[in-house]
């Protein structure tokens, strides 16, 4: 993986892409809260949530195949974590509990997938800063994201080399070699950081991080946020009181 595979989709211009990133983050958090709060017996609410996420996916301009792939690859992963649930209860009850758990987890994951596929990471960072996230963290995240794929690529090469020598062997030598690999990566990263710092200083950096952004919230953004909250609140409360 040489670079973030989602970058391809982030430069499109769908409805979701054009929303203010801060609104998207706030809306996403509201959605997540609803997904967790809804009582498990309120199946209608979950159905509506799925429809809602589906609509967002459609509006995001990102191909369905991308979402399907994401879903398919993450389901077994999450399922493994909740694997013992069906065994814990007799019969249908246990399976149902397991499925509701999976629902909550997968709805959250797919919602976040829409968010991250339709928003540039640097915009997410700037939105976070605007919403009160510590500036230091934002700057560190910015650097991290820039170098993550580069370092990952270098690591992969080393990992392949290590695997071809030590695959499956649980020996002292294997562990020492792995540690040596990690130490080498560490030192390279450290020295890379020192050189990046030199480049920054050469261009006038003097210790205090500065950023450039301007977001503006439009009527469309506010409308979207309120529509989302009202809709989700509606389907959640409706189902909960009916029973």
């Amino acid at each position: 993986m040489k670079h973030d595979f989602m970058d391809v989709y982030r430069d499109r211009k769908s409805f979701i892409h054009c929303l203010d990133p801060r609104i998207k983050i706030i809306a996403a958090i509201c959605c997540l809260v609803f997904f967790i709060l809804a009582p498990g017996r309120n199946l209608a609410a979950f159905a509506w949530y799925a429809v809602f996420v589906g609509v967002l996916m459609a509006l995001s301009g990102v191909p369905v195949s991308f979402y399907i792939k994401r879903f398919a690859s993450l389901v077994p992963f999450v399922a493994l974590i909740g694997i013992s649930v069906p065994f814990m209860h007799a019969g249908i009850g246990g399976v149902r509990v397991f499925l509701i758990l999976m629902c909550r987890a997968m709805l959250s994951i797919m919602l976040l997938s829409v968010l991250t596929a339709s928003t540039r990471f640097s915009d997410l960072l700037k939105a976070g800063e605007s919403l009160g996230f510590p500036k230091l963290l934002i700057t560190v995240l910015s650097f991290m994201y820039r170098y993550i794929f580069l370092i990952q690529e270098e690591t992969m090469l080393m990992k392949i080399a290590w695997h071809s020598r030590f695959f499956g062997k649980n020996t002292f030598k294997a562990w020492k070699s792995l540690a040596g690999l990690i130490a080498a990566m560490f030192l390279r990263s450290f020295e890379k950081a020192e050189r990046v710092y030199l480049a920054m200083c050469s261009r006038g950096f003097s210790g205090q991080a500065k950023t450039l952004t301007r977001f503006s919230i439009s009527f469309q953004d506010i409308l979207f946020l309120w529509a989302t909250i009202l809709f989700l609140a509606g389907v959640t409360l409706n189902g909960s009181y009916k029973n």
């Binding site: 540039r120 990471f121 640097s122 960072l125 910015s142 650097f143 994201y145 820039r146 170098y147 580069l150 890379k192 050189r195 990046v196 480049a199 920054m200 261009r203 006038g204 950096f205 003097s206 500065k210 450039l212």
Partner: peptide, 20 residues
């Protein structure tokens, strides 16, 4: 790679004038 450390080209080129 050690000189371009910003998320976008624009931000990298803007770094110097920003800090000026």
């Amino acid at each position: 790679d050690e000189q371009l450390f910003s998320p976008t080209v624009y931000e990298d080129v803007a770094f110097a004038p920003l800090y000026m």
